[in-house]
Design a protein around this nucleic acid. Sequence first.
DNA 1: GTGGTCTAGACCACC
DNA 2: GTGGTCTAGACCACG
Lengths: 125, 125, 125, 125
Amino acid sequence: MIQIDYQDKRPIYEQVIEKIQNLIIIGVLTENDKMPSVRSLAIDLSINPNTIQKAYQELERLGFIYTVKGRGGFVASQSSWKKDISDENLNNLKDVLIELDKLGVSKSKVHDMVDKYMKGNVEND
Amino acid sequence: MIQIDYQDKRPIYEQVIEKIQNLIIIGVLTENDKMPSVRSLAIDLSINPNTIQKAYQELERLGFIYTVKGRGGFVASQSSWKKDISDENLNNLKDVLIELDKLGVSKSKVHDMVDKYMKGNVEND
Amino acid sequence: MIQIDYQDKRPIYEQVIEKIQNLIIIGVLTENDKMPSVRSLAIDLSINPNTIQKAYQELERLGFIYTVKGRGGFVASQSSWKKDISDENLNNLKDVLIELDKLGVSKSKVHDMVDKYMKGNVEND
Amino acid sequence: MIQIDYQDKRPIYEQVIEKIQNLIIIGVLTENDKMPSVRSLAIDLSINPNTIQKAYQELERLGFIYTVKGRGGFVASQSSWKKDISDENLNNLKDVLIELDKLGVSKSKVHDMVDKYMKGNVEND
DNA sequence: GTGGTCTAGACCACC
DNA sequence: GTGGTCTAGACCACG
């Protein structure tokens, strides 16, 4: 389900968070799906249960999952994270654009990249 | 010349690097300008000289400054860093665009932001 | 009769206790009404009978219901819980008021909220 | 500086959070004061450093302190927590008032308690 | 079985 | 010295 990259400088729990976020964002995991248990995922990835625990707690804080003691973790609804995550990425976009502008990169090149890397979701405006 | 933000989560030496990079990119510091000495900048910012030293080493590795033994550090020419930094930022842009696409943000919104945050440097293409 | 919220962080049996307490306090369940059997309520809510059992035991300890062996549970009289519950809430009120005072919230704002959220039960003093 | 109550059912790290929050709210610890180090406070309270660490991270998330790697933790400015904490307490107040109303407690009794437990901060309205 | 908390002890980056 | 991460192993409440 998930692969840890030990070359990656980021802490393991952050990688786990990012990987699971992605699975939820792209829809592989959907609302109310059962998450693997802390222990089973820890064994699966050969890492300590506490590390998974930390990742799950952060995912819950971010609104991606909810947990019920004694029953386990479940995927939360889109509404609890979609706006936050979109806003965060739009902020990153702004920063990068300002930086590229300072570096003298042309607008047309950036417009071209937008067309290249985005499929275009017209309906969401 | 530079302000350290102690609330910033990043290590101080990274902040120093970023601030000096910016001064060079926007042209406040230009080719062959003399950099402040490690010691004087450390006193100026009230931080440990080792921290400045580490920042200068990294800036030299990145091609922003060069060091002459016994005379100090100097700003390097644009040619030694411009391409690297632009490529790095274009990579970031690509990642953010892909992420925004997954989240269902529309292309038109992104195009609008490009026009909003970039002045447009036509000559550099 | 009762709805379990699985997103709620509290244990299920606490939710059951709170919901039944409320039904009794607001008068939907009144003295000597028959409580649903542990088994039927468990099936109704699709949860483990042990969980209902635990809730009923606690409700009995708090004086909200009484159990007759072989006949089931019944709602107890107001006298067995009203004072305890009122005292408990007045204690909470005291704590919150002290906290708000420390935070510099004005008395007039609090008086306003009292008028806003309480209908005023003059007869019970 | 802090006392742990082992009779208290709440986890240790929550007690630590609450105690430190209080010291900051009442002004014993003020902006930019140095917090005791994770290790020293752990020894002081005879508990594990990880437990203190967890408390400090949560206090940082709540805006009460900020930490700088290699230098330690410091008390943040009031602005980063005052509104959140006040709002939270006003919400608690609302819940308690509604509950007391359901229980038939009179408004006049509540008004009396407000006058009794609050000194009155007229200026903050 | 599940998640939540805690301990003991370790290594790392940073200053 | 500082905080941040991770491991190994334990106990608890919950269902």
